[in-house]
């Protein structure tokens, strides 16, 4: 087990519970989850489908309200925020990378990357502009900046999504099955880019996946099953992770 106390937390969840439905048809998607996501690390959240991993991500990102419990960004409890403040929080503190449909099809690559600033109505200063230029160059996007998303391959689209997430220097990046639509080589590339973001820029990244090979890139793997955290391990190889998944599936 790793030592959480040594690192700064990007986000903390306390007593997080989510129940869907009401009356007789209640289903508990999450039961009393406590979790700290640390900066500078790639944390994978694994679990079979229906385990509650997506629910956990939605609650951590403020996309959904918990039935009870709290989610802290620093000393701010986001579960108490209204839509206006949550919107501003997403714009400045959270980056998103998804399996598909990451980009606005009518905008060019560069416009997609700059979109969060456009939405906030903030002018880019020279320093921020340089940061973005460096990230797009790192991700190999410089020759593609004027293209539109449909002219890109799946892997390229995912790189644009990562660039956009990094552009705002968020507290936290959520990547939900980011390799789901990619072939294995392109998938590995995308994962190493997320890894590099944590290593080089001290970024906190949460990777939600059911793929053991993807989770093997993480510095820490949290297993969710039936709405509870059942394992919380450091860097682990893919075959061990696969065995843990199978074992969980067997015990369900």
């Amino acid at each position: 087990m790793h030592r959480m106390s040594e690192r700064t937390s990007a986000v903390r969840a306390r007593g997080l519970r989510k129940v869907y439905g009401d009356g007789g048809g209640e289903v508990a998607a999450l039961r009393e989850v406590d979790l700290d996501i640390e900066v500078g690390r790639l944390t994978a959240i694994m679990g079979p489908s229906g385990s509650g991993k997506s629910t956990l991500m939605h609650l951590l990102a403020g996309l959904d309200k918990p039935t009870s419990g709290s989610v802290w960004y620093g000393d701010l409890d986001i579960t108490a925020m209204d839509d206006h403040r949550l919107t501003a929080l997403r714009r400045t503190e959270i980056g998103f990378v998804f399996q598909a449909f990451n980009l606005v099809p009518t905008l060019t690559v560069l416009e997609n990357v700059l979109l969060p600033f456009d939405l906030a109505g903030t002018k880019l200063d020279a320093g921020r502009r340089r940061w973005i230029d460096e990230r797009t160059a790192e991700l190999g996007l410089t020759p593609l900046l004027a293209r539109r998303p449909h002219q890109l391959s799946g892997g390229q689209q995912q790189r644009v999504a990562i660039a956009r997430a990094l552009a705002i220097r968020p507290r936290l990046i959520f990547a939900d099955e980011p390799t789901g639509n990619l072939d294995s080589r392109t998938g590995r590339e995308v994962l190493s880019m997320l890894q590099a973001a944590t290593r080089d820029h001290g970024q906190a990244v949460v990777l939600v996946t059911h793929d053991a090979a993807a989770a093997a890139h993480a510095d820490r793997v949290v297993f969710i099953s039936d709405g509870s955290i059942v394992h919380d391990v450091g860097k682990t190889d893919a075959s061990t992770l696969s065995e843990m998944v199978l074992e969980l599936a067997g015990h369900r």
Partner: peptide
């Protein structure tokens, strides 16, 4: 809708 949802996710206000 999907595109609007993406913009909302990235921090656009519904009103805007």
């Amino acid at each position: 809708a999907r595109r609007i949802a993406l913009l909302r996710l990235l921090g656009a206000e519904g009103r805007t």
